[in-house]
Design a binder for these strands. Sequence first.
DNA 1: CATATGTCCTGAGAGC
DNA 2: TGCTCTCAGGACATAT
Length: 283
Amino acid sequence: MPELPEVETMVRGIRPFVEGRTIAAVRVCGCRCRPITLFPGLKSMARRSVGRHVAAVRRIAKRVVMELDSGDAFVIEPRMTGLMLLHDPPDPEHLRIEWRFAGRREFNSVWFWDRRGLGTVRLLTAVEFAELSGGGLLGPDALTMTANDLRERMAATRRPVKVALLDQRLVAGIGNLYASEILHVARIHPAVPAARLTAPQADRIHAATRLVLEDAIRHEGSTLGDGTYRNVLNQNGGYQNSHRVYDRADEPCPTCRRAKVIRIVQAQRSTFFCPVCQRKRQH
DNA sequence: CATATGTCCTGAGAGC
DNA sequence: TGCTCTCAGGACATAT
């Protein structure tokens, strides 16, 4: 499930082969699948982008953005199972969109591949794009937010801190996997109401967020048991081997080695934590 | 307004 | 063996 580290890995992976290139074609590919959500339709997408240069490739929260010299921007949301690929898809039938570039280099296309098809590809105008990135729909980026950002955001909701960390309007980029990892490093119980966090506790979450996300980026993200996430060369990420608690119910806590990691459900999502290291009341 | 739940989708695994 | 059922969760829509 692509969260900030996986999407950052996609961006860094395609950037050297996409930035500065001229778009020669955009087409729908794959076969038996229901078409994924495209906005606007493929025709106007192609009309507005073919012949344009890709001015920049960057990440906004959990989205990949390819900005064109016209000011329009492709915004790709991988959601659960989407990937950006330079070649060699996990399977050919779930390829969804291909961007082909003019000229001949090592890679001349980039693909969006998506097994479940929940992802979206949109071509936004400069105005629409500005609304997305600065319209209050997304909180500060989890990788660059300040400690004060996080304290203020957490103070604004009574929801459990784990659930609050998943709200992209509060903090952008954290998903279900990294929320558990971050809270374990920060030694915070996931059910604590966010507004009840003390300032030092919120600061621990801030520091843990940076630590965990940067480490996960270094390892090129997490490839879970279902093998869905792959980097742009269709290789596994490596951070799953460093997971402390996620999907490790009944295994010993890597910190205290005494308690077993337990799994609870919050807002219909799995949360993993150590009941000893992440006690609600600390002494 | 804040919070909670339902929906989309496919493949893996369980159970009979 | 082969069927049906449940589960996984990011973001958005709808309900309370």
